[in-house]
Design a binder for these strands. Structure first.
Length: 399
RNA sequence: GGAGAGGUUCCCGAGUGGCCAAAGGGAGCAGACUGUAAAUCUGCCGGCUUAUGCCUUCGGAGGUUCGAAUCCUCCCCUCUCCA
């Protein structure tokens, strides 16, 4: 085999590895060609600093970026601070309220520290799009807008749907894909990553780069991860997420509550488990509950280490399968007898007295293992000790 | 600028003078069943220290009325058609 041929094969192989797990790459030949240049590529990921909690859904994209880093490429972590200040409507039918500069920088910092749980900080460039957008000015913005037709922008699925449904669509929303695209120009992105829902925006980046005589970026989309409900995509605002900074115990509990079907999906997307192994689980050759525990352990190991993952499993088995009161349950001190509803409120086990009453009425409250239904029950520290509300909320009360 | 439709509790959506804290569905919570799975069934689902009781809520501000989410006035916002 000649040297040149070998290099070629190597590149094909690198490209194949990088593509692994992606939903779509546009286009593979271009990626190979770009890799052939032999220089570190600039891999862009844009994030809006709105809801500053990264979750397992983000981890798919972040892990893919890490793959690129391991091959020596540079990741550009683009914080859309400019866009966030205007109030980003992307993907939502209602306009978000704009964030202040201060909120944005706090959120951006949170993002950054969370992202570095997965990314290599030495190969990551953190940038903000206000860097160039603040300077742009109306004249240049209009010139930029002249590069894309309205019809082209309206091809975007959610724009089309909203128009169809007679829901409001504002002018500035049409501008968003364009600004995101311009970020790619400004950054000289070689590749841009995103969820499959970002495909349109990423492609506009390609168009714009081409129209401004830049090399068009390669677009790589990652599958969207379903949230804990198994239906809608994982997102903070839907509350169906597992955050990457959550404790091992919380992660374990959340992952165990997932349906068997979703478990298989998580195996595929979130772990490197071989297909053959996943098939076994699908065919129930492994008890689904055991499989789910392994899934939880595997995922938790990535963020907390193997020891913590094992501990989380033990904790789960003790707490929920054997119904034991955890030794490390939160301890709360009260000086004297307290009305049970008030106690629940103070523990944040119920958001209001009314809710506390309802829970009592439904038999959800136990004190030292005994169900309490009396709304007037008074909790006496010393005499009573453990309060449980529902399956998940427990506290030890001490005088 | 003109004509029409519309803004309801977390979301969708019914309600056009008292029976409305407001149908129904979704989400959520709790209980049963379980593997804290799914499916299913049942209940809850604005707030208030004890309630056949009170308070707050139906885009906003006023008004009519014994009584308003429902009627009137003005204002704000969205959509459609015409220009």
């Amino acid at each position: 085999m000649s040297g040149a041929k070998k290099v070629k094969d190597d590149i094909a192989q690198r490209a194949a590895v990088l593509m692994h797990g992606a939903a779509e790459v546009i286009s593979l030949p271009e990626l190979e060609q770009r890799l052939k240049l032999g220089r570190p590529l600039r891999i862009k990921l844009g994030l809006d600093p709105t809801a500053p909690d990264l979750h397992l859904g983000h981890s798919l994209v972040l892990k893919k970026l890490r793959d690129f880093q391991r091959d020596g490429h540079t990741v550009i972590f683009l914080v859309g601070d400019f866009t966030a200040m205007i109030g980003d409507p992307t993907g939502r039918s209602e306009t978000r309220k704009p964030l202040t500069r201060e909120e944005i920088s706090t959120n951006a910092e949170t993002y950054r520290s969370q992202a570095f749980k997965i990314l290599d900080p030495d190969r990551t460039e953190v940038r903000f799009n206000s860097e160039w957008m603040d300077e742009m000015g109306v004249r240049r913005l209009i010139q930029l807008a002249a590069r894309q037709s309205v019809a082209r922008m309206l091809e975007r699925d959610d724009f089309e749907k909203r128009l169809e449904a007679e829901e409001p669509l504002f002018l500035h929303e049409l501008l968003y894909p364009l600004i995101q695209a311009y970020d790619s120009v400004a950054l000289g992105a070689d590749v841009e990553l995103g969820g499959t829902d970002q495909k349109f925006n990423l492609l506009v980046g390609r168009d714009l780069q081409r129209s401004m005589s830049h090399e068009p970026q390669i677009v790589m989309t990652m599958p969207l991860l379903e949230g804990l409900d198994g239906v809608r995509k994982m997102s903070k605002s839907l509350g169906n997420y597992v955050g990457i900074t959550e404790s091992a115990d919380e992660m374990f509990g959340k992952l165990m509550s997932v349906s068997d079907t979703l478990m298989l999906r998580y195996y595929e997307l979130l772990t490197d488990t071989p297909t053959a192994e996943i098939e076994k689980i699908r065919k129930h050759e492994i008890h689904p509950m055991e499989a789910k525990k392994r899934l939880a352990e595997t995922i938790i190991t990535e963020y907390h280490g193997a020891a913590a993952a094992r501990a989380a499993r033990h904790h789960f088995e003790s707490r929920f399968q054997r119904g034991e009161i955890p030794r490390d349950a939160q301890v709360f001190r009260i000086a004297s007898a307290l009305w049970i509803c008030e106690l629940m409120k103070q523990l944040k086990f119920a958001p209001s007295t009314s809710e506390a009453r309802r829970l009592l009425g439904q038999g959800a409250v136990r004190v030292d293992g005994k169900t309490i239904t009396d709304v007037n029950f008074r909790f006496v520290p010393g005499e009573h000790e453990v309060i449980e509300v529902g399956k998940r909320r427990v506290a030890r009360i001490k005088p």
